[in-house]
Amino acid sequence: MSLLLETCISLLLVIGGLFGLIGSFGLLKLKTPMQRLHAPTKATTLGVGATLLAAAIAMYWQTGSASWQVVMISVFLFLTAPVSALYLAKTHLHLGKDPLPPTSTKADWAGKRR
């Protein structure tokens, strides 16, 4: 039982570390600013989520008392990642001059500079 648990925690840690690394690598490798926004919002969030999950299980296993703070941190990260990504995308659109497709109705995009 304990070996199985240890294997699970180790696997989660390795997967988390790899995804965190991929996220930061994508930030360097991708070419355009909007493409770069994809890497940290998805890969890093999942990587840190998996790592924190492993840490929570490991702490419970080692000390015998559950540490809910770590779970709360990963929930918080998962909730805030889309919001900061939306804000960064809005800022990029505000500062840049990307050609945008038309909207489906008469109203224009909300952040468009007039």
């Binding site: 600013p33 770069r36 926004l37 990587g47 840190v48 840490a55 941190i73 990260l77 900061s84």
Partner: peptide, 21 residues
């Protein structure tokens, strides 16, 4: 670009959280 810098700092924060834990 400035947005890349904000994104880099944001990612650093997330990575540092993982390191602390």
């Amino acid at each position: 670009q400035i947005t890349d810098r904000i994104l880099a700092v944001d990612t650093m924060v997330v990575n540092i959280i993982a390191l602390i834990v």
